[in-house]
Design a protein around this nucleic acid. Structure first.
Length: 641
DNA sequence: CGATAGTTGCTTTTT
DNA sequence: GCAACTATCG
């Protein structure tokens, strides 16, 4: 890693020459705790990736001494690719989401909190199932399950354990939390919140472990710092090298995740929290034309709590933001579809267009219209590949083979495909598992030993248990092979093949696709870790299709043309946010939406909309009036009626 | 036990 | 308007 000065000069010319002065400063400042306030479209990814390459190429640290944390897997993947292009050895950089990094650390230290090192990570679905189960045991209405799940997640976001005085142990939520935590622990499983909470706990209780990681990571880079929650913040503070080596990048104007525990306060407090700090503002926008940027800026200026940035561009002022009224939701979709066709004729690629909506269900009417018009599209972040029933079933088998105590996986597939183990048999297993505080797998073996089940049930349960055990003997086979054996031997594939419906056809297709994806994984643990933490199947590819997605999932992306639909009071800003008094976050969401556009931004709103299958009339969103009139134009185009 | 018909409640946003 | 859950019967 010894470079002489002349070489350094060359390296840095190569790395830094394309950067503006602020970007360059953000890259080369290494001796301070640095906060980069990066406006939309100002090149923060470029800064982050260049900074990593800069550290490596100049020999300030080995790749393995750099920790780079992102919020989404997509961002991590993008960053990885870009660093690869700049510097060799980038694989050794610790780059990933908070959750994936924590999973890695936790796996190496699981014994310290009494977990095995092959614990499984459960998703929101399993979490909810478990909570419903507990509610049932306590004879509480299952309606509150979502609410309780949310409360538990919020506690975990703050590293608050069930026995913490801040948890009211007499409340339903508090009671469930205690049982839930005990139960999930006995399954040798953790949920998303646990990943952070446990690692923070390990760091707190084991000074030498913390010390080890503090010495390891010379440089820590954090993307989307405005979206960190309390536990992530605690984690960072413990790990951060004092007064230097930390670089947080974020934009308080794009803080849109308070509902999942993110605290904008973290970014607002940065200077107080860390010693020897420096703030660099990136305000020069390279993405959007002047009118779009102007419209976005006029909107976000209405927010009171801001660190304050003035984004500017010296590019073209371009087209104004077009606002168009529609008679109803169907007409809105029609207007958008026709605009898409027109832009396509003006040679804007489909892949450079996106329809952004406030809530997931809104994509449907657009889908229908786009299908009718023959416009290719994809729903981003909608139904996720790994969330499909058949995929989850197969993965549950793999989880159970990997970790027999994973009772949530056991429950999912003990009777799939149907093998005669119905509700009453299952409840016997369940009761035993609870009584003896053992897993369903162990409970099954116990009960089978007592020979108290009906003969047919005994037989099929025995076959099931034996199958899992025999697979455990082969768990070192390549995951694709394991999957094939499961699908064949359990009869899962047969059942689907015999069904011969359209649905079963797509299920088979999905499973085949999974088998192909499995080829990329060397062993079972690696794959299971991957599915637990990665929500999308990676073939996002470069298909030339229109993207449909929520505003939340659009963060970090950019398109030539963006359609912002459903700007009506109650839809956007969403009625729940209005009730909660969270208007500023909705406005930031609007800001994120507009700033995704490079050249064209269209905003539409409908006067009437069908909600719950009932027509209601809506008022235009208040945000429309907040857009500076010099940057917008109201289209007089037909409203579809 | 499993298939079927009937009932409910749901829609903010996600790692 | 639909998915997910519940009750009922063979």
């Amino acid at each position: 890693m010894q470079n002489n000065t002349a070489e350094k000069l060359d390296v840095n010319r190569y790395l830094l020459d394309g950067l503006n002065p602020e970007q360059r400063e953000a890259v080369i400042t290494l001796d301070k705790a640095l906060l980069v306030l990066s406006g939309a479209g100002t090149g923060k990814t470029k800064v982050l990736t260049t900074k990593i390459a800069y550290i490596i190429e100049n020999g300030y640290a080995f790749p393995s001494q750099i920790l780079a944390v992102t919020f989404s897997n997509r961002a991590a993947r993008e960053m990885k690719e870009r660093i690869f292009n700049m510097t060799p050895g980038a694989d050794a950089v610790w780059l990933g989401t908070f959750h994936s990094i924590c999973a890695k650390i936790l796996r190496n230290n699981a014994d310290l909190i009494g977990l095995s090192n092959n614990f499984t990570i459960i998703d929101t679905d399993d979490q909810l199932k478990l909570i419903k189960q507990i509610l049932k045991e306590l004879n509480v209405d299952k309606k509150v399950a979502n609410h309780v799940a949310n409360a538990i997640s919020r506690w975990k976001d703050k590293c608050i354990r069930p026995n913490d005085p801040r948890v009211d142990a007499t409340s339903i939520e508090g009671k469930i939390y205690a049982i839930y935590q005990e139960r999930i622990f006995s399954y040798d499983s953790v949920d998303f919140g646990d990943l952070l909470m446990y690692v923070v706990r390990i760091f707190k209780e084991n000074a030498h472990i913390l010390q080890k990681y503090r010495e390891k990571f010379r440089y820590i880079l954090v993307d989307e710092y405005q979206d960190t929650n309390m536990s992530q913040y605690m984690w960072l503070r413990m790990l951060s090298p004092i007064g230097a080596g930390l670089c947080c990048v974020g934009d308080d104007d794009q803080a849109i995740y308070s509902w999942r525990g993110a605290e904008v306060g973290n970014i607002l407090r940065f200077e107080k929290d860390f010693m020897n700090t420096k703030i660099v503002r990136l305000e020069r926008n390279y993405r959007s034309v002047g009118h779009i940027l102007g419209a976005a800026a006029s909107l976000i200026a209405k927010n009171a709590t801001r660190l304050g940035k003035t984004i500017w561009t010296d590019g073209d002022s371009g087209e104004k933001v077009i606002i168009q009224r529609a008679y109803n939701g169907f007409d809105e979709a029609k207007i958008v579809a026709e605009k898409i066709e027109k832009l396509r004729k003006d040679s804007v690629a489909f892949g450079q267009m996106a329809v952004l909506v406030r809530a997931g269900f809104q994509t449907r009417e657009f889908e229908e219209r786009l299908i009718a018009y023959g416009i290719p599209y994809k729903v981003v972040g909608g139904l996720k590949f790994y969330d499909r029933q058949e995929i989850k079933d197969l993965i549950a088998y793999m989880r159970l083979i990997y970790q027999t105590n994973d009772s949530l996986a056991f429950e999912r597939i003990v009777n799939i495909p149907k093998r005669g183990i119905g509700a009453s048999a299952f409840s016997k297993l369940h009761t035993r598992a609870i009584e003896r505080n053992i897993s369903l797998f162990q409970a099954s073996k116990e009960i089978l030993g007592e020979n108290s089940l009906r003969p047919l049930v005994t037989e099929s349960l025995t076959t099931f248990i034996k199958f899992i055990e025999s697979m455990r003997g082969q768990k070192d086979l390549p995951p694709a092979q394991i999957a094939k054996i499961i699908l064949d031997e359990t009869g899962y594939m047969n059942v689907l093949t015999n069904e011969k419906t359209l649905e079963s056809q797509t299920r088979i297709e999905n499973l085949k696709e999974l088998l192909i994806a499995l080829e990329d994984f060397e062993d079972l643990p690696t794959f299971i870790e991957h599915v637990s933490l990665v929500t999308d199947s990676k073939r996002n590819s470069t298909d030339d299709v229109v993207s449909l997605m929520t505003l939340h999932s659009a963060k970090g992306l950019e398109f030539e043309a963006v359609f912002l639909a459903g700007w009506e009071e109650g839809v956007f800003p969403h009625s729940m946010s209005l009730q909660e008094g969270n208007l500023e976050e909705e406005r930031r969401l609007a800001y994120v939406g507009i700033t995704r556009a490079k050249k064209y931004a269209f905003i539409t709103y409908a006067m009437n909309r069908k909600v719950y299958n009932q027509w209601q009339s809506d008022l235009p969103s208040r945000f429309l009036a907040e857009l500076s009139t010099e940057h917008v134009v109201h289209s007089k185009g037909k409203t579809g009626r």
